[in-house]
């Protein structure tokens, strides 16, 4: 059992976010509204990091290891020095995974939007290819 009594940190944060959403937001004026939304967003980031963070960190280290490095700093240095030039596709794959992990915590709405855009673009590409064949 943890030292601290319940509720857990996640539940405390959720209570703050719900308070902002249900009590503060409806009566906020236009200027306050932006700031209330930002505050809700900050709480949301912390909630997601608490819940998803440890798993994402583990996966991140694993992905780094596939490139023979142990940290973001080492990876940055290896890219800069040209040591990974021959592994461009693998590097792109790891960076994509890393960036998705960051977006999952910080900006899930952005991730969803760009994924939808990518799907639409792929569909357009496919249609074009079809038309070219037909």
């Amino acid at each position: 059992m943890p030292l601290q009594d319940p509720p857990a940190v996640e539940d405390l944060l959720q209570a703050v976010r719900e308070y902002l959403q249900e009590e503060v937001l409806p009566s906020a004026d236009a200027n306050q509204r932006v700031h209330v939304l930002m505050a809700m967003n900050v709480v949301g980031v912390v909630e997601r990091e608490l819940v998803l963070g440890p798993k994402l960190e583990q996966e991140h280290v694993k992905a780094l290891n596939t490139l023979g490095v142990n940290s973001e700093a080492e990876l940055a240095q290896a890219i800069k020095s040209g040591a990974l030039d021959a592994k461009r596709d693998e590097v792109l794959k790891v960076l994509r995974q890393t960036t998705i992990a960051k977006l999952t915590v910080a900006s899930p709405a952005f991730l969803e939007r760009t994924r939808k855009e990518a799907e639409l673009a792929a569909q357009r590409q496919a249609k074009k290819a079809e038309a070219a064949q037909g």
């Binding site: 505050a39 792109l92 960036t99 977006l103 910080a106 760009t114």
Partner: peptide, 26 residues
């Protein structure tokens, strides 16, 4: 301020765009 607090956590959006461009250039 609240908005500058969030900016650092949104750098990854620009990273995503950078990766998309790098892939298309390849």
């Amino acid at each position: 301020s609240l908005d500058t607090a969030l900016i650092g956590r949104r750098v990854c959006e620009v990273e995503w765009d950078t990766l998309a461009l790098l892939s298309s250039l390849r």
